[in-house]
Every structure is written in structure tokens, then in C-alpha cells.
Design a protein around this nucleic acid. Structure first.
Lengths: 209, 209
DNA sequence: ACACAAAAAGACCGATCGGTCGGTAATTTT
DNA sequence: AAAATTACCGACCGATCGGTCTTTTTGTGT
């Protein structure tokens, strides 16, 4: 299946999506205009419509691409850690490193878009909610494994833990971006690390203070 | 000089600003168009320009109005509590109640706008950052008073505490809005309450679990 | 009744928005 | 070699964007 046309189309398609994820991490998914996206990728505006029927379809594709990037940079590396509290911590740690790495010029695609769509019903909002729900489910699952392994106290409320980890991860972006609080990453690390250590019968599995 | 014309102008001015705060809590400050705002307030679009020279000036006025609403609904009631950890908790509790009260259709003006402007330099971003910094400074100040009163452990890092409280308050909005997690408010309360109780030598000052 | 000033309306402008259309060059299938 | 498919472009469309200009309405002192 070495189709030159399909290969070329696939190349520009992913190039556009990558640029769109970057652009949306700065401006949001709706504020990203097709003309600017086309100009940034050196494609004509009508060329975009050759790949996606309308803006909404492109936005959905952008979300899928953002999930892929997130998985590659955060989830997969964290799963190199053994199951349990170390993997749970790695998820948070990798996330903060991802923000600091500057892969996305806006810091985080999901932080930039979820406030934009939380009151705007439709497929785009549903896709964003599903992506974030998947992320939360992942945290809960890993936390539940840590409980099973005896690395978190048996009475741990994994829903509560997932809420707090997500809250602190999100806050790292908003603090370091809008305010120029350079200590945001440290606060976000300390908050979750202290919490997990206090919940764990084996805190020595986690990095020291 | 009790001029009825000035009174009329003042009336429409605050009416427009109130509507704008509501609209911006849903759509954001930039996505809020002047035509829609004018239509919602039954004012002509050019009537808006009679009160503010351009959109940016109106946005700045809207921010000031949003701060005023926030102060009236959250800060002032919380200051009815005595200084110390009870007042600190009241700030968080009042905030969550404000979100649940439905005063703003979008939940929170600042949550809706800060991701929109965190990468967009200019006076509007500066004003938003200043407003949120004021709020954080307030939390830190009240927390420091709690330390002085011996209601929080003397080694408490008030910067860290402010980060965590703000993170959890913010997360209550995003969780209850985008996802339809109805338990968001409970998670946000529990997270801060447990944290403050663990930091306080006199946890009986705080409500029970 | 009058002049005056503030508030508000209406018509209009250039730019940009998402989106459509007809067409072309290149590649693959038949 | 013809036919079909794919990638992509430039021109253009109606709607809406923020903003300007001129005019009308409305309330106030004399």
C-alpha cells in the first residue's frame, strides 16, 4: 500500500493537525481560525476543506491528535514505572515535565480548550469531555491498583485522589502561565507528593522531599 | 447636580456590565461580541461606544465589575467569620456556594477568562492577572493570620496552601461543568477541609466530616 | 419656550469569519 | 492510453466582526 497520493495527503494532514494542536493550545479550538491555520501550515484555506468537511470535523480530529500527543509524552513513559503508587506519581510528574518541556506553545491543549467548551453543547464538547474522562479514569485505575498492592491505605477514596491530582496538575498550567509564578511546578509537585506520602504505608517508594 | 441623564447612563452602564459578566462567564471575554451584548441588553451597538471607547476598555470595565461581584458574594460574607482558619475555610466554602448558586450562568467569570488570555499579552491580561493575584494574596494573608493565631502549624507554607486552595476551587468549576460530575463540590470541600484540619492544632474550629 | 448636553439610534465601513465553487496537476486504476 | 481518484488552489459568497459618523431622542437649567 505504497500510495504516493495517500502518503502525501497523510503527511499534510498530520502536519496540519500538529500545527492546529499547537495553535489551539494558545488560542483555543474555536478562536483558532482556518485562515490562520492554513497560513501557518502553508496550505490554502480551501485545501483544508479537502481533508475535513467543516471546522467541527477538523476540531474533532485535532482533539484526537492532542490525545495522541498526550499519551506519547505522559501516559506511555509513566507506564514504564511499576504498577502502584510509583506509576501514579509518574503520571503526575510526567505531566508537569510535559508542561515545562515547551512541546506545546500554550502549555496544555486541554486546559486551553475545556473552559472554552464547557458551556457549548455539541460533538466537540462531548469529545473533550470524553478525553478528560479517560484521563481521570486512568488515574483512578492506577490509584486502585496501588490500593490493591497495599501501597495506598485500603480506605483511600480513589475518586477523591483523582480529583486532587487533576486539580493540581491543571493549576500548574494556570499559575505558571497567567501569573508568572515560576514556582508553580514545585507547588504542584509538593501538593501531590505530600498527599500520596500521607496516604501510603510505604512512602519510601516515592521520591524524598 | 442630580442629573437624571447621568443617572440613566449609569443605570445602563451597570446593566450592560452585569450582562457582560454573565455572558463572559459562558463564552469568555474575547468571544463575547459587542453585537450580541448589545442585543441582550436591548441597547444599540453604537450605544455601547457612547460609554466605552473600544472593546478593550469595555473588557477592562467588565473585569472590574466581575471583581466587585466576587467580592460581594465571596469575600465580604467570609469576613463575617473571625480571623484565622475559620475565615480561611469560609473563603473556600463561600466560593463553592457561589458557584452552586447560579449567579453567573457560566459558573465563574475568572475560570472562563483566564485560560483565554494567559497567552495574549496586553492590558486585559494584566488586569485579569492582577485580579487573580489579589485573590491569592487575600488567601495568603488570611492563612498567615491563622498561623499567627496558632490555628495553623507554625511551619505552614502559606504560598503552598494558597496554591492548593485555588487549585481545588478552580477544579470544582471545571469538573462540574465540562464533565457532569455532580460530586465536584463535595470533592473540592473535602480536599481543602482535610488539608486544613491536618495543618491545624485546633481542627475543632472547622466543620466535621 | 429655548438652548444645551448627555444618551442612544441608524446607516455604514473595511476586515475577517466559515464555507462553496470551478478548475488543475499529479497519481493510480482499468 | 483513457478514466478515475486524490490533493490542492484562487476566486468568491453571505454573515459577522469591531468601529465610525451623523442624526435623533431625552432630560436639564434659564
Amino acid at each position: 500500500m505504497a500510495d504516493g497520493r495517500l502518503a502525501r495527503g497523510e503527511r499534510t494532514r498530520t502536519a496540519v493537525l500538529d500545527a492546529a494542536v499547537s495553535m489551539a493550545s494558545v488560542d483555543g479550538l474555536e478562536a483558532m481560525s482556518l485562515a490562520r491555520l492554513a497560513h501557518a501550515t502553508e496550505v490554502s484555506k480551501s485545501g483544508l476543506f479537502a481533508h475535513w468537511p467543516d471546522k467541527e470535523a477538523l476540531q474533532l480530529a485535532v482533539i484526537a491528535r492532542a490525545v495522541h500527543i498526550w499519551t506519547a509524552h505522559v501516559v506511555t513513559p509513566a507506564f514504564a514505572e511499576p504498577r502502584g503508587v510509583r506509576r501514579l506519581w509518574a503520571l503526575h510528574e510526567r505531566r508537569i515535565e510535559f508542561y515545562a518541556s515547551g512541546v506545546l506553545p500554550g502549555g496544555c491543549f486541554f486546559v486551553a480548550t475545556q473552559a472554552e467548551f464547557d458551556d457549548r453543547p455539541g460533538p466537540v464538547r462531548d469529545a473533550l469531555a470524553a478525553a478528560i474522562n479517560d484521563w481521570l479514569f486512568l488515574i483512578k485505575t492506577v490509584a486502585a491498583q496501588a490500593v490493591e498492592l497495599g501501597e495506598l491505605r485500603p480506605d483511600t477514596d480513589v475518586e477523591q485522589v483523582a480529583f486532587e491530582i487533576e486539580a493540581h496538575g491543571h493549576a500548574v498550567v494556570t499559575f505558571s502561565r497567567l501569573l508568572h509564578a515560576e514556582g508553580a511546578a514545585a507547588y504542584g509537585r509538593t501538593a501531590v507528593l505530600d498527599r500520596l506520602r500521607s496516604l501510603s504505608p510505604v512512602p519510601e517508594l516515592l521520591p524524598g522531599n
